[in-house]
Design a protein around this nucleic acid. Sequence first.
RNA 1: GGGCCCGUAGCUCAGCCCGGUAGAGCAGGCGGCUCUUAACCGCAAGAUCAGGGGUUCGAAUCCCCUCGGGCCCGCCA
Length: 493
Amino acid sequence: MADEESQLVAERRRKLGLVRSAGRTAYPYRFADVVATGTVATAARALEPGAEDLAQSFAVAGRLGAIRQHGKSAFLDLQDRDGSLQLFARVDELGEAGYQTMLDELDPGDIVGAVGRPVRTKRGEPSLRVTRIELLAKALRPPPEKWHGLQDEEARIRHRHVDLFASRESRARFRARSLLTAGLRNFLTEAGFLEVETGVLSSVASGAAARPFVTHSHYLNDELRLRVALELQLKRLLIGGLERVFELGPVFRNEDLDSTHSPEFTMMECYWAYADYTDMRGLVERLYERLAHVAAAALPDVPGAKAAPEVFRPPFDVVDYVETLERAMGRDGLLDAPVDELRRLARATGVAIADDAPAGKCFDKLFDKYVEPTLLRPTFVMDYPTATSPLAKAHRSRPGRIERFELFYRGFELGNAYSELNDPDEQRRRFLEQAGDDPDAHFALDEEFVEALEHGMPPASGLGIGVERMAMALTGTSSIKDLVLFPPTRRRR
RNA sequence: GGGCCCGUAGCUCAGCCCGGUAGAGCAGGCGGCUCUUAACCGCAAGAUCAGGGGUUCGAAUCCCCUCGGGCCCGCCA
């Protein structure tokens, strides 16, 4: 678009020129003693309609919305992080010149500061009777339409800054995500977990079955990969004696973007020494109970969030992986079925399954098709077949199973936990088994990790939660793009 | 990777089926109005119809290609 030439930009530049030729700046350094708009609104709400509080003066600052002129008076909507407030400007307060200058120089979208007294209009709207108004930053581009805002999905993502100031919902959603992340962090910290940062770059990307991003280090003159999981690094911290650790940070998987997957997303993993997956299940239940309240408080007007405390009230449902799958498929003996048979069954669901696909993959697909969509209430699925994960400990009493659970809600995963495998010989064997003959196996043997286990890792349980999915579930958001501020987009040409 | 759909003024949309040379609302300009809140009233202005090619006397409209996006499936957890 030829914005530079557009009338609208030219008009705003003309107004910028007015400010400068009057010897003022359109981009000053600060505006003193700013309070949130809510502070003024609260003070004004205490007044009778039509009344003004002459005793108090407040300064507010934010972005201008609509400007409603009435000849010798004007109403200006001001939006800040807290909400919005109506400014009531009149010629008898600002003087002819001051009033005219304001109207000549300001546009919707400008950042302004205003000083004035709380007032309640005759219609009852809490407002600020303006005694001084100052341009704090000129907006050279016009804001989106005041009623519909930015509708175009592409524009909302590429111009997230505009989406945020134009959409109250968008602001509220990202604020809720932030509060949920903080809630997660607080919960774990209170439970005695130490937050760590283990680094994003490494030579081996392991811990999950995913294709990594590959980059190059000039210093090492070698390839580096972006992490796909936090698991192996955090377990090494258990070996190091940190006992209870968690990390909250980005992981990268070189795959497509869709409504539930983003190539870059935020993962939380925590590891708890001397605990098993039953302990962890209790922790997950308490965690979601707490976060559901955070979501409901953050988004009281969003039905999905408001209902969360009711939905996530413990105890959650608990089902057995194999039993549930067999019942859904109407057959039994799955655990003992030969891998050929599993591949055949998985293909029958219409999914592409390679001729050498391992049994774990087949189980994943079958569960995905037959069971996941039916798990609408928060449900723990217990005791997965051994083939589904090489990093979990064998079940203490059920052959062919591992001590693993996942939490599902509305058909998607909200957490994944194991009693962690800490026998180095067993770990080496399981890695090799998982990789099979596949040279591109994502679970490549991580010899360094196995060697670390040989130093002795305490028995422990680990948990992984995809932060966006957690936030989606608790805020009733259907697309992950609405909870990732800057999802990757194609280069604009 | 496959299928379907979308791209028109700064923003939100109509026009496309059935070809005749682009229309509204908001925002912006000018004028009016000292309690409006999607303010209101009047006047004037604003378009590479995503880009390229083709068909046609004539293309926003029909056809092909490209770019960008959305949804579904696949891949992926």
